[in-house]
Design a protein around this nucleic acid. Sequence first.
DNA 1: GAGGTGGTGAGTCGCTCGGCTCACCACTGG
DNA 2: CCAGTGGTGAGCCGAGCGACTCACCACCTC
Lengths: 216, 216
Amino acid sequence: MSRVVTTYHQRIAQEKRALILTAATALFLELGYDRTSLARIAERSGVSRATLFKQFPSKAALFDAMVTESWSTADDEAPPPAGNIVDGLGIIGRRYAELLGRAQMTDLFRIVIAELPRFPELANAQFTHGKMPYFESVRGYLLAEHEAGTVRVDDVDLAATQFLGMISNYLFWPTLLVPGWEVSAERVAQVVDEAVRTMAARYAATGPGSSQAGSR
Amino acid sequence: MSRVVTTYHQRIAQEKRALILTAATALFLELGYDRTSLARIAERSGVSRATLFKQFPSKAALFDAMVTESWSTADDEAPPPAGNIVDGLGIIGRRYAELLGRAQMTDLFRIVIAELPRFPELANAQFTHGKMPYFESVRGYLLAEHEAGTVRVDDVDLAATQFLGMISNYLFWPTLLVPGWEVSAERVAQVVDEAVRTMAARYAATGPGSSQAGSR
DNA sequence: GAGGTGGTGAGTCGCTCGGCTCACCACTGG
DNA sequence: CCAGTGGTGAGCCGAGCGACTCACCACCTC
């Protein structure tokens, strides 16, 4: 991105910063905000406490940097299908399910929910990087299909929420509540498929279209 | 229930216990587990710290009692529609929406999610008093209608989850994330109605039944 | 009115926390 | 070779925490 001056001891400083963030991420996600002490972060990252305080002015700043960094790497790993609306609901739903299924993603959600009263600005990040891209994608798809006459959707916002809700309510909540919960890949695909079918049945343009039965 | 012996100073003790629980509930829900100190609970409840320690052996025990008590009063206020499955999806959905809409209910959800790693047994309570009764109710209704031939539902569990997910994803998540979020009663009813219609369209017995269009 | 139950308030203990300071060292770039 | 940047380790501080103790008191019941 920007031209990096690098090459002084600055490089070492950035390495230390990365080490701190890695350790902080692991500890915050595992223990929560209060039970994670800066001393343990320093110990785990192999960095002195003085360095930690020079890099991050306060515990809150470190926590904020950790969340921001986690979201950015999450975006890198699986970019949201922003503009591509022609692939239909299936691909969007599958990517959404994939996002919800990542283990450290649920941990991140958990701590964000827990610390929201203390860090209200995290709610924005949660929406911006989490649900919103997928919601917009579904919304755009439905809107385009509606205008094309393929489907008939009066309340697009509600319909999009319905679709994502059918997926997340099955895949996400148990993961958030039950520690070691896992859903097989087949079941994930099935859940998404069924959600797509339900949407097709509900919002068919006129009569029952191609989405009717489905023996499988 | 059980015959209460009462009438010694035991009654006073129970009053004190209730005062403690009330204060503890307010503080835990507002500040979270770690940031709530027993000293502040004692101060707020107007009870000495010694009394607090005699009533509850530890902070964890007090927290557990608080959650249990909150769930039981929640059940009293709106008993889950356990056996009554003839009223259909609408009444179940509306009661579910009413549960999710209560302000202190979201606070309770938040702290339970936050402290789950430390109190794993809370997950059971969350399921037992929260989602499960409504899930079972929807499930039972769909099963009965399926056997009656009114609808055709192959995967009852998935269908029930879809229904509740369409509701909770619209009403619950924003409430959990955005501090002062509110949804009007009309919109709540609309969301539930649309979820019912979607279910009817998807799981119609053969052709499109009575649930076809719906201009509104 | 005497006995006993239960509440009270103050105090103590050991511990951990976030935050901060400072003298000292390692290493790089000129 | 030497100046300077950045990391290090140890230590200190004030505060708050959960947990516990004990002498004292208020009140009801017999």
